[in-house]
Design a protein around this nucleic acid. Structure first.
Lengths: 121, 121
DNA sequence: CATAGTACCTTGCATAGCAAAGTACCTGTG
DNA sequence: CACAGGTACTTTGCTATGCAAGGTACTATG
């Protein structure tokens, strides 16, 4: 395992939450999501995104409709279902809790490194 | 897939970072880590922790020594290697970037839901 | 028809969380 | 010594999922 791989691992799981957020704003198709995620430095690729959208659809959190494009093949525009909105809320709460938990761990490390010199063996 | 499963997914990857943080404070053994992570609501179990510690050890970021216990079998006390400290720094930077990225996505959703009523179909 | 561009989908592999079962060490009791 | 109970570390087998790579399909242009 290397550092890059570990950094990728860290992003896993968060991705699903971000995608739901983007879809919650209104109808979007895959390329829209890729653009937004890329500009937020989340680095996603098609091979990740499409299976993920299919999973979310099969779980009942997304729905989509085909819309013809003026330049190219038709696109799948996704929207959140009512269940999906509930799910997104739960995910957002989990995110804030997780961020809190991590912050608590970081904070505790900083606290201990101030007063405690026992680890300078 | 259900909500609980998705919440678990979100925690993945972050765990490794938190464990490195805890070890960075000084010598600890597995039960210490489980206590701290549980109190930070990270919900880890042995079947996750031990293989993870072994991976980190094999990657050269941790080292350990056996210490005899006054009550029970000997314990593996882990410490960060020099490489591990560099790795932890990189992970911490990734964490802050990731938190920023997620915050940006959340923020953008909030912005768009203020001025844009097109999604109230 | 051929080519190029766009968009969606699938296959196969590697990683990693986790439940559950297993191994090993220490102490106390009889 | 035998046995039971507690603690700690390890392994197996299953499953989920990210992702590289390759595939399918539609449209426009000449």
């Amino acid at each position: 395992m290397n550092i890059e791989n570990a950094q990728v691992q860290m992003r896993k799981g968060i991705l699903e939450f971000c995608i739901l957020h983007i879809i919650s704003r209104g109808e979007v198709y895959a390329s829209d999501m890729l653009d937004e995620l890329t500009s937020a430095r989340m680095m996603v690729v098609e091979g990740t995104l499409y299976p993920l959208l299919t999973r979310l659809k099969n779980s009942g959190w997304l729905d989509y409709k085909w819309v013809e494009s003026s330049s190219g093949p038709p696109r799948k525009y996704y929207v959140l279902t009512e269940e999906g909105k509930i799910f997104l809320d739960a995910m957002q709460e989990t995110w804030f809790e997780l961020a809190d938990s991590v912050q608590a761990v970081i904070h505790r490390t900083e606290e201990l490194s101030k007063g405690d010199t026992s680890k300078t063996s």
